[in-house]
């Protein structure tokens, strides 16, 4: 998956939840949204990105949300 595109998507999600929940709590909304709507390979890609590059290209709330995501199941 194109990580730049995924990062844009995640940052757009963050824009909403940062205003809805506040910057401190936004990561919870972002995490739930990504869990509920992203296929496991998309979650795997962004988790790997954060592990390898830290916050690179991501809003802090997104990076925090991604760090809290459970390991997605392997795509078989």
């Amino acid at each position: 998956m194109d990580i730049e595109h995924l990062a844009d998507m995640a940052n757009d999600i963050a824009n909403f939840f940062e205003s809805e929940l506040g910057k401190e709590e936004a990561h919870k909304g972002i995490r739930l949204h990504i869990s509920r709507y992203w296929d496991p390979r998309m979650r795997r890609a962004i988790i790997d990105h954060v592990r390898q590059h830290g916050d690179g290209g991501l809003r802090p709330s997104v990076a925090a949300a991604v760090r809290g995501l459970p390991e997605p199941p392997a795509v078989t």
Binding site: Y37, D39, R41
Partner: peptide, 8 residues
């Protein structure tokens, strides 16, 4: 698990 959307 949720699946892929069309653009995905």
């Amino acid at each position: 698990e949720p699946g892929l959307r069309i653009p995905n």
